[in-house]
């Protein structure tokens, strides 16, 4: 059983002048339990539509979606999910504590456990001091943190987070990344959408890229990072302060006794062989790679 699964999931919206807009085109996606999956895509690519379909907030034009094997159209499918909507909004006349308690009660949590868990999540998300104040007085970042707190309170197996870092300052973003990594350690499944590649690179096991309603790539982050290696920047330190060439490669620059060489993947072995034979000290080898952002941009800009 997959944590999240979609099969041929399509969504059409009515456009202007009786036209139809394909927001999502036959999405097939399987996300395993214990996996952190980043859902990347530019604005308007269909990330939020996919999430709303998985959460049963929208009805698919075709196809199916399920959470922990339960069809998304059923109330039961939401029993094991913590969901953070994009730009979340909660009853602003309630305090964070009241809202978290309300959410916990919907999951039939036992009252002493709910009280304890509420305290835990509010403290963890730095909302403890403000817990009694109505949320209408909260900043955007605080509301976002309430959103995360309400996903954590019932300790579900699946987390679906729509742009979880949105509206957070660097400290908040680091906190969210920590929380996601902690969930990963505890074997939880986290599916989150973002358009910030750095977030995906740091916390995800796999990434899916959606462009104009179609899933254009799904791969493990480590594979993408590995396939993106373009060459190496090698720093050599010479005893006699006299720089020279190895395997026909000239130094990019020289400062004192140290020279810097750019070596392509194909020339790397030959280069290092000559360096070893000459007994030159290797000070540093830096990998030059296309990062996830380049990978993402290459997919988005593909004609």
């Amino acid at each position: 059983m997959k944590a999240i699964e979609t099969t041929g999931l399509c969504k059409q919206f009515k456009g202007k002048k009786m036209t139809r807009v394909d927001a999502l085109k036959s999405l097939d996606l399987q996300i395993e339990k214990g996996e952190v999956f980043g859902f990347l895509g530019p604005n308007g690519a269909g990330k939020s539509t996919t999430i709303k379909l998985i959460m049963g907030l929208l009805k698919p034009t075709a196809g199916t979606a399920s959470i922990m094997g339960k069809d998304s159209s059923t109330t039961d499918s939401r029993r094991q999910v913590g969901f953070l909507p994009e730009n979340p909004a909660f009853y602003d006349y309630l305090s964070a504590e009241e809202y978290i308690t309300f959410v916990g009660s919907q999951f039939s949590m036992e009252s002493s456990l709910l009280k304890r868990r509420t305290e835990d999540v509010l403290k963890r998300l730095d909302l403890w001091e403000a817990r009694k104040r109505p949320m209408r007085g909260y900043s955007k970042g605080m509301v976002q943190r309430v959103g995360l707190a309400q996903t954590l309170v019932h300790d579900p197996d699946v987390y679906i987070l729509d742009e979880p870092m949105s509206g957070l300052d660097p400290i908040g973003r680091a906190l969210v990344k920590d929380i996601i990594l902690d969930l990963k350690r505890r074997g939880k499944c986290v599916f989150f959408s973002t358009h910030i590649t750095d977030d995906v690179e740091k916390v995800c096991d796999r990434v899916g890229v959606i462009v104009k309603g179609s899933l254009v790539a799904v791969d493990r982050v480590e594979n993408i990072m590995r396939s993106g290696v373009e060459g190496y920047l090698v720093h050599l330190r010479f005893q006699d302060s006299a720089s020279r060439n190895f395997a026909g490669i000239e130094p990019l620059r020289t400062a004192g006794s140290t020279s810097e060489f750019y070596v392509s993947c194909s020339a790397f072995n030959a280069f290092m062989g000559e360096v070893n034979a000459a007994g030159v000290e290797v000070a540093l080898v830096e990998t030059k790679r296309r990062d996830l952002e380049d990978f993402f941009l290459s997919l988005v800009n593909k004609p």
Binding site: M55, G56, L57, T75, D76, R78, R79, V81, F83, P85, P88, A89, F90, V103, Q106, F107, G147, Q150
Partner: peptide, 8 residues
């Protein structure tokens, strides 16, 4: 969005 994504 938040309320209807609960098991309600």
């Amino acid at each position: 969005f938040s309320v209807l994504s609960l098991p309600v």
